[in-house]
């Protein structure tokens, strides 16, 4: 069975009496271990499909199975559990808690899976060292550079050892050199067996993946291997 299976999925937003079809009857399967890039122009529906796959949202119609969980009509609690256990998220805007230090930010998912405090900090420290932040453990995000912040975000996405990492324009706020370093980390993660889904509008970044899915106006218009 596929890790991610979208069948005939639509996402429709109702704004006033206007109906916005952000996604229109999409079929998409992603297998374990794949490195997929989703590209398309702004407003095409890339983030929307990411949010669905990332269990931050549910489809308006269609069937969605993530890591073996049928989630088309899932309750918020079910979605939260899948987000916590199976999925790691990396955002363009980092989305770190500015008041918490690096370790506390990284251990956040473990809090919600009920890991005891000592173990939590231990695992958070270990992952922080893996992403190269071993010397900034007690810094808070405002004291870090953009690249370092994104490393914290990646560490947070990894700390609960999920199967899939979703990254929505992870290099969008970074200069190209730093961006390349971050992309290198995704390569490594994919090599170590994680499934990576990366959203970008930059074809050169998409070219680093194994499979590119192009979206336009809520439809998958093209799919190719770079």
């Amino acid at each position: 069975m596929s890790l991610i299976d979208l069948e005939n999925v639509s996402k429709i937003y109702q704004v006033g009496d206007q109906e916005i079809r952000a996604l229109d009857q999409i079929h998409l399967r992603i297998e374990a271990g794949e490195f997929v890039a989703i590209i398309g122009p702004s407003g095409s529906g890339k983030s929307t499909v990411m949010h669905l796959m990332g269990c931050l949202d549910t489809p308006s119609t269609g069937r969605m199975v993530i890591c073996g969980n049928e989630l088309s009509r899932a309750t918020p609690d079910q979605l939260a559990r899948v987000r916590n256990q199976e999925i790691g998220f990396v955002f363009q805007a980092f989305n770190l808690l500015p008041k918490l230090d690096v370790v506390s930010n990284i251990e956040l998912p473990l809090i919600y899976s009920g890991v005891p405090a000592a173990q939590r900090r231990e695992r958070a420290r270990k992952v922080a060292c893996e992403v190269g932040l071993g010397d900034r453990l007690s810094n808070r995000p405002p004291q870090l550079s953009g690249g370092q912040c994104q490393r914290v975000a990646i560490a947070r996405a990894l700390v609960n050892n999920p199967q899939i990492i979703f990254a929505d324009e992870p290099t969008g706020n970074l200069d190209s050199a730093t961006g390349l370093a971050i992309l290198g980390m995704f390569d490594e993660l994919n090599a170590s067996g994680k499934t990576i889904v990366l959203v970008t509008h930059d074809p050169s970044i998409a070219a680093r993946s194994r499979r590119v899915i192009e979206i336009r106006d809520g439809h998958i218009v093209r799919e190719y291997q770079p």
Partner: peptide, 16 residues
């Protein structure tokens, strides 16, 4: 709100 969003994104349930 943003903090709550972040906590939810990493797995906080509504009841948490």
């Amino acid at each position: 709100v943003r903090e709550i969003g972040i906590r939810m994104a990493v797995g906080a349930r509504p009841k948490d």
